[in-house]
Computed example of a mutant assay.
Amino acid sequence: MTPRLANALQGAECLHDRAAIDAVISRMADAIHADYAGDATPPLFVTIMHGGMPFATQLAFALGERGLDVEFEYLHATRYRGQTRGSGLAWLHRPATSMRDRRVLLVDDILDEGHTLHAVTRWCEDQNAADVRVAVLADKLHDRRVEGITADYIGVEVPDRYVFGYGMDYHEQGRNLPAIYALAE
């Protein structure tokens, strides 16, 4: 562990441990399975990189355990680029799979202000996706959300503090921590 991450963890508060996260992923998988189970074509399961990867992996396994097949795809769009404050959106990779007439499930680590998810959702709609839904592990509680952006499936709520772990980073570190932490206030 780097000194920077060790210092951040030293004063951090554990908001949601691995057991709690596993429980909410199971609950989310039940809800997603119920919404997609009758479809003839598997949904396009689009992981938003890098933060969405740990959560998306666990969610995909939980869906497979319930008998729901998904077709994997990913995209990489970011506003942070290693910083703790967002700036303009940068598209680093767009999906190669056609979204035309497909049901798309976007999977991300957190819904904060929603700029990235708003842009990604609109892009999927512009690609003529039949339906676009959003699953996020964490929903940050504040009043700065982009108008009109919500998640269809939410794992946990987090306070309006800088959070990291389980996909969310602190200066590109700590994404692989098996819990969600908030920096000391």
Rank of each mutant, 00 (worst) to 15 (best):
P54D: 13
V146G: 10
R144V: 07
I21E: 09
V163H: 00
H93N: 09
T84G: 06
I25N: 01
A130M: 00
M168L: 13
A31P: 12
R100Y: 01
A62R: 03
L5M: 09
A8H: 08
I180N: 06
R100C: 00
A77E: 10
G51I: 13
P159I: 09
L59S: 02
R161E: 03
H33D: 14
A179G: 04
L5E: 07
D143G: 08
D109C: 03
E185M: 14
R4G: 08
V158N: 07
A179C: 06
R18C: 10
T78G: 12
H93M: 13
N7Y: 11
E125Y: 05
S26H: 14
V104W: 01
R66A: 03
G88T: 10
T121P: 11
T47P: 15
A182Y: 09
G165A: 01
Y36F: 15
T41Q: 14
D39T: 09
A29W: 04
A119H: 09
V156E: 14
V134Y: 06
Y74L: 12
T84L: 15
H76E: 12
E73S: 15
D30N: 13
E13Y: 10
T150H: 15
R81H: 15
P159V: 04
N7P: 07
I48D: 13
H118W: 09
D17E: 02
T78C: 07
A90H: 14
R94V: 06
R18P: 04
G88V: 08
D143C: 06
A8V: 06
V158H: 10
L137A: 05
L9W: 03
A135F: 03
A29C: 02
C124G: 01
F164R: 00
E125P: 05
A12K: 10
L68P: 01
D112S: 08
G38F: 04
R161T: 03
E125I: 11
S26G: 08
V163Q: 01
D22N: 12
A129Q: 00
N128M: 03
R133A: 05
L137R: 05
I180R: 05
S98I: 07
R79V: 05
E73K: 05
L59P: 06
S98N: 06
E73C: 04
H93T: 11
R161H: 04
G174V: 01
H118L: 11
V24E: 09
